[in-house]
């Protein structure tokens, strides 16, 4: 497999895994919670590394998931005191957890295989060199990993589509009908954490957050129904992966950063030209209406 293909596939798989979850974060107004969770998993990674000396996927994912839950529970606990608004609670909890992680890295794990650079902003350019031997065939490690996470997210949506849909749309109705919005919400955020931590070493925290948020927000401007929103969001993830890669190669710039920029560019285009919600589109409609409204008025005078 060529390096180019490996990188694009890795980013595309991330775009898929994240694009599946993103729409629900946007609809549930949990975008920033997902950003918080993506950062808060760092101490989980560090602790697992300190305890087991490994970055093996399964223990790291468990450690990350534990801290994702700690982060969410902590934010909720603080918010539920009624003394702090939820935005401030988020702004208090996740930097604290992240600071713990940074201290752990700099104090105990520096110089070993765990450095901040690769954890936080990763370097997707190196993914082709991290390989696994599977039945004598060399496989780029990120592909089966992200593939598994994507499959997990697909499974989550396929199994609980109805539940996720109803808790997103009308949480109190769901609760009355025996579906716990809290449980569903936790599941989604744990999935976010797993996606984030798996993608960390290949693409880094920043690109994960970007892939979770930007394609979904873009898709929200373009679609009015749930399933199309999810699919378009995944599609924009792929567009960002491919477009970003070619941009990065031609400009010799950061690949992850370029992908994020392409995603953001898609958003800006949608913001301006989306059929129903775009600024330009709406300005045109408004101008037409206004002239229509003025005509009878003028005719009257």
């Amino acid at each position: 497999m060529s390096d180019d293909l490996a990188i694009i596939l890795t980013a595309g798989l991330l775009g898929t895994a994240a694009g599946l979850l993103g729409p629900f974060l946007v609809l549930r107004r949990q975008v920033l919670l997902s950003d918080a969770v993506s950062h808060a998993v760092l101490p989980g990674i560090v602790i697992v590394f300190l305890l087991f000396g490994s970055r093996a996927p399964v223990p790291v994912i468990i450690g990350a998931a534990v801290f994702a839950v700690i982060c969410v529970l902590g934010i909720e606990a603080i918010r539920n005191t009624g003394l702090v608004h939820s935005d401030a609670a988020i702004g208090l909890v996740f930097p604290t957890l992240f600071a713990l992680g940074v201290l752990g890295v700099t104090e105990f794990a520096e110089g070993v295989h765990l450095d901040l650079d690769s954890t936080i902003y990763g370097e997707i350019a190196f993914t082709p060199f991290r390989t696994w031997e599977v039945f004598g065939v060399e496989v780029v490690r990120s592909l089966p990993l992200l593939g598994a996470v994507t499959a997990l997210n697909v499974l989550l949506l396929a199994l609980f589509w109805k539940e996720i849909k109803v808790t997103t749309f009308d949480p109190s109705f769901a609760r009355v009908n025996g579906i716990s919005p809290v449980v569903i919400s936790r599941c989604i955020l744990v999935a976010v954490a797993i996606t984030a931590v798996t993608a960390f070493e290949s693409v880094g925290a920043i690109l994960v957050v970007t892939m979770l948020i930007v394609p979904a927000a873009t898709s929200y401007l373009l679609t009015v129904r749930l399933l199309p929103m999810v699919l378009v969001s995944v599609g924009i993830g792929w567009i960002s992966a491919m477009g970003g890669y070619s941009f990065a190669i031609s400009m010799d710039a950061s690949i992850g950063g370029s992908m994020g920029m392409v995603a953001a560019a898609c958003f800006v285009l949608a913001l301006l030209f989306a059929p129903r919600y775009g600024f330009v589109t709406r300005a045109l409609v408004r101008a037409r209406r206004r002239s229509a409204a003025r005509k009878p008025a003028e005719a009257g005078t």
């Binding site: 408004r286 209406r289 206004r290």
Partner: peptide, 10 residues
């Protein structure tokens, strides 16, 4: 009008 729909009209 908000966005494109008139809320108060003449």
């Amino acid at each position: 009008s908000y966005s494109s729909r008139p809320v108060l009209w003449d």
